[in-house]
Computed example of a mutant assay.
Amino acid sequence: MTGNALFQFSFYLAALVLLAIPLGFYMARVYEGKTCGLSFILRPIEMGIYRLSRIKHEQEMDWKTYAIAVLAFSLVGFFVVYLMQRLQLSLPFNPQAFHAPSPDLSFNTAVSFFTNTNWQAYAGENTISYFTQALGLTVQNFVSAATGMAVLVALIRGLVRHETTQIGNFWVDLVRSTLYILLPLAAILAVLLVSQGVIQNVSSYQKTTTSLEKSQLQPGSNFLEAQVLPMGPAASQIAIKQLGTNGGGFFSTNSAHPFENPTPLSNFLEMLALLLIPAAFCFTFGAMVCDKKQGVAIFIAMTFVFITFAFAAVHAEQGGNHLFNTLDVNQHAQPGLHGAPGGNMEGKETR
């Protein structure tokens, strides 16, 4: 591992720890219904959601009722996303007039997003409308992640409570996960990503014309060639995609696309967001079981596994491809701002 790689890795871990610890304790207060930093703004909204939805927030559930609520909510999410895809040609915010994905693709995408697996079998920039991206897939990125967080909190309560069968209220945990944790973090991250150049608009795709040298043109072709640049509300989806450990990006290549991830800072922020909430949950666990040492122990164990496999992966990549040795390809790292990173660069994105 090069010195530069070691510094970046160490800086990443330090930033993750510094953010995960306070976030974890904040999340514990949220799930326990205690006053937190955003309560004066969000508590009235939370109570309004309960009244509007007729949720009895003071009434807890046993594990069977909790599980039924999880499954019912997820099933509704599946049908909404499926229908939104099938009807997208008739829905607004579709400037490219994308037709509906096929029934099997719509089914696969809906199942994938409501289960938080977010596996993509489509290219978002030529398949899915802005309406479906924002109100279908992005919303599922929020609520499917919030559902997983709620289930984890219910599990923690089940481990702690010994004299009751109640493990909380799914609807309350869902609302609090979304309102107090995911929405504020996603808003902050989206603004930071926009500042780095990640696009956020509802404009039609833009056409640009690039001059090409004669040597690059095929015989009989013109000197000018139009290029279509996809647009859309990407930053808002990328933020929750990373924070919720979702896989569904706005564009087909996800964060390898320059409109999703244009700078080294945006790349660092997106990597940090991926592990932030999982790491924070270690400290949430410690706070909720009233034994912070248990949370620290889990975090140390997870970090040890992460570091072990990360170093193994970096070592293998920096070692290069032995088949290239016979081709006189230099795979050694070179110092300096413009030096080669070294190792196996085949298939790597090198912007």
Rank of each mutant, 00 (worst) to 15 (best):
F142W: 03
V139A: 10
F142Q: 06
A134T: 14
T117L: 08
Y130C: 09
N126C: 15
L137N: 13
A154P: 04
S144I: 04
G148W: 02
T138C: 10
L152G: 15
T147Q: 02
A134N: 14
A150K: 02
L135Y: 02
V151N: 08
A121K: 14
S144H: 01
S144F: 00
Q133Y: 05
G124S: 00
A154R: 01
L135C: 03
V151H: 07
V153Q: 03
T147W: 02
Q140C: 08
M149G: 06
N118F: 00
A146F: 09
F131W: 11
A154T: 04
N141V: 05
I128N: 01
V143K: 05
F131V: 10
I128A: 01
V151K: 10
N126E: 14
I128G: 00
V151G: 09
A134P: 10
A154S: 09
A123Q: 14
G148R: 02
V143L: 11
L152Q: 14
V153N: 01
Q133E: 11
A154N: 02
A146T: 07
A154M: 10
A134V: 13
A146C: 10
M149Y: 13
G148I: 02
N126F: 15
I128W: 00
A121H: 15
V143Q: 08
A145G: 07
M149C: 08
F142T: 05
M149I: 13
V139Y: 04
Y122I: 13
Q120D: 11
F142Y: 14
G124M: 00
V139Q: 00
G124K: 02
V139K: 02
T138L: 13
A146L: 07
F142H: 06
F142R: 04
T147A: 07
L152M: 13
G124L: 00
M149V: 13
T132E: 01
W119F: 12
A146V: 07
S144T: 08
W119C: 14
I128Q: 01
V143D: 02
G148E: 05
A154G: 03
V153Y: 04
S129W: 06
A154C: 07
A145K: 08
Q140E: 13
A154V: 04
L152I: 15
Q133M: 12
I128M: 07
E125T: 03
Y130M: 12
A145N: 08
N141Q: 14
T147C: 09
A150V: 05
G124C: 01
G136R: 00
T138Q: 12
G148F: 03
V143H: 07
W119G: 12
G148Y: 01
A154F: 04
L137V: 12
Q120N: 15
G136W: 03
V143C: 09
A146K: 07
L137G: 11
A145M: 10
S144C: 07
F142S: 05
A145E: 01
A146H: 10
E125L: 05
N126A: 14
F131Y: 15
M149L: 14
N126D: 15
G124Q: 00
S129L: 03
G148C: 07
A154H: 03
T117A: 08
S129I: 06
V153A: 04
T127L: 11
